[in-house]
Design a protein around this nucleic acid. Structure first.
Length: 200
DNA sequence: AGGCATGATTGGAG
DNA sequence: CTCCAATCATGCCT
């Protein structure tokens, strides 16, 4: 009996120590990663930039994505929601500051989205849960499987800014903050909100 | 090395 | 709380 108790006790302490160690390790890892994110800036993947730009330029009149939209954009781009918020914040500021510089980009993406918005049928709001995606209908698998294969490589540079198209700088010098730009048409299944960390 | 582009952080305002 | 504006720090190109 005494032997058993001693053995169990020893095992228990060993496991305890192991657990402590692994926990500490995990915490350290998380912490370092967080700290890393602060200082170490890595450019977003092409896909993320594409997705964000498409949304931004197709909603230039009101580039304030709702929480759900942010989530979806984040998932599509393989980034976090806060990163989406950061990006939109930076983008708004920088776009306003230097509208002319973004004209090429703007036309590029607006054209791209306009060609892709064929699905936008009646009702104004597409009931389809998959948001208007560029190129074709549904290039993004949306399976959240971490298989972030860069599918839309092809439409990276569809066409240069067409000369001749008069790009009048939009006079919306300041966006009016309209609350709830998009009706909360939440896609029922919000599962698999797993942030697959493809980077690193 | 320098300059620019860009993501992240911070502080103030609503 | 979110957003804006300024700023910092890094990545990338020359």
């Amino acid at each position: 009996m005494e032997h058993m108790v001693g053995m169990i006790h020893g095992k228990f302490t060993a496991i305890q120590r192991q657990l402590k160690q692994s926990t500490c390790e995990a915490v350290m890892t998380l912490r370092s990663r967080l700290l890393d994110a602060r200082r170490k800036r890595r450019n977003f993947s092409k896909q993320a930039t594409e997705v964000l730009n498409e949304y931004f330029y197709s909603h230039l009149s009101n580039p304030y994505p709702s929480e759900e939209t942010k989530e979806e954009l984040a998932r599509k781009g393989g980034i976090t929601v806060s990163q989406v918020s950061n990006w939109f914040g930076n983008k708004r500021i920088r776009y306003k500051k230097n509208t002319g510089k973004f004209q090429e980009e703007a036309t590029m993406y607006t054209e791209k989205t306009s060609t892709a918005t064929k699905v936008r049928g009646s009702g104004g709001q597409s009931s389809c849960q998959s948001t208007p995606s560029p190129g074709s209908c549904g290039p993004f698998p949306l399976t959240s499987g971490g298989d972030m294969v860069l599918t839309l490589r092809t439409l990276a540079f569809l066409q240069p800014p067409p000369g001749g198209v008069c790009l009048q700088p939009p006079t919306h010098s300041s966006w009016q903050r309209a609350t709830a730009p998009q009706p909360p048409s939440s896609p029922a299944g919000d599962s698999g909100s797993f942030n697959s960390d493809v980077s690193n």
